[in-house]
C-alpha cells in the first residue's frame, strides 16, 4: 500500500539546516496497523505529514498504491488525499463554526457525494461513534473524548483506505483514550490501514508493528503479537 525509499526532508532556517528525515525507507502493507514512536524531534510528525500528502519530501521515492506521488502538485495531492486518507489529530481540529454533523459532512462535500447519501453516511458514522445525540452541537460544547470521536467520524466517513493518526489520545484522559484506541482497532479489523504516531507505549501495543525512529532514521522495527 505504502512504500517509501530513501526519503529525505530538510528544514532550513537562515543559519542551520536540520535533517528531519535521513534516507528513510519503510513499507506498510494493506490492512496493517503500524505505530511510529520515537523521541521528540526524531521526524515522526514529518513522516506522517509526508505520508498524508500534506507535505512533500526533498528527495526519495513515495509509492502510494504503486503510484509515485513524491512529485505530485498540490492539486493532485488534494485529490488523492480526499479519496484515500483520513486524518485524526491530537488536538481534534474540528471547525468551530460548524456543528458536529456539518464537520463530519465536510469531506463528503469535497468528494462530491449527493445530499441524500451524505445524510445517510454521516448519520451511520455518528451512530457508530455513539455521538448521534450530539449531532447539532458545536465542538466547544463537547468533551475532549467526544470531540475526538467526532474527529474520527470525520476521518472515516469517506471510508478511506488509510487513517493517519497523530497522537490521537494525547489530549485525552486514559479512559477516553482507551475508547479511541478501541475504535481505531475496530476500524483496522474492518480493513482500514492505520498509521499512528504516538508517545505512549500503551497505545502502541494496540498496533501490529512499531517503527522506532531516531534522528530521521529507522532504528528498530518490532513486530507485535
Amino acid at each position: 500500500m505504502i512504500k517509501i525509499t530513501n526519503l529525505e526532508k530538510f528544514y532550513r532556517t537562515e543559519e542551520v539546516e536540520t535533517i528531519a528525515l535521513n534516507k528513510l525507507s519503510m513499507e506498510v502493507k494493506k490492512g496493517e496497523f503500524v505505530a511510529i514512536m520515537g523521541p521528540s524531534g526524531c521526524g515522526k510528525s514529518t513522516l506522517l505529514n509526508i505520508l498524508g500528502l500534506l507535505d512533500d519530501p526533498d528527495a526519495g521515492s513515495y509509492l502510494f498504491n504503486d503510484i509515485e506521488v513524491a512529485d505530485f502538485n498540490e492539486r493532485k495531492r488534494a485529490d488523492l488525499r480526499k479519496h484515500n486518507i483520513g486524518f485524526v489529530f491530537q488536538s481534534f481540529n474540528l471547525i468551530d463554526e460548524l456543528t458536529v454533523f456539518e464537520n463530519v459532512e465536510l469531506p463528503l462535500i469535497y468528494t462530491g457525494v449527493a445530499a441524500a447519501d451524505r445524510v445517510k453516511k454521516v448519520e451511520a458514522v455518528l451512530d457508530k461513534m455513539q455521538i448521534m445525540h450530539r449531532r447539532n452541537h458545536y465542538p466547544q460544547q463537547l468533551s475532549g473524548g467526544q470531540q475526538q470521536r467526532v474527529a474520527i467520524a470525520r476521518a472515516v466517513v469517506n471510508t478511506p483506505k488509510i487513517i493517519l493518526a497523530d497522537e490521537p489520545t494525547g489530549n485525552l484522559d486514559s479512559s477516553n483514550g482507551n475508547d479511541v484506541m478501541e475504535l481505531l482497532t475496530d476500524l483496522n479489523e474492518q480493513g482500514t490501514t492505520i498509521i499512528m504516531v504516538t508517545h505512549s507505549e500503551h497505545d502502541a501495543r494496540y498496533s501490529h508493528r512499531i517503527i522506532r525512529l531516531l534522528d530521521g532514521q529507522t532504528v528498530v522495527e518490532n513486530i507485535m503479537i
Partner: peptide, 16 residues
C-alpha cells in the same frame, strides 16, 4: 488558519 489546515487535510483544494 486552523480551518484552512483542516479543510486542506480533508482534501480541499487551494482553489476551493
Amino acid at each position: 488558519a486552523k480551518e484552512v489546515g483542516i479543510r486542506k487535510s480533508i482534501g480541499a483544494r487551494r482553489f476551493q
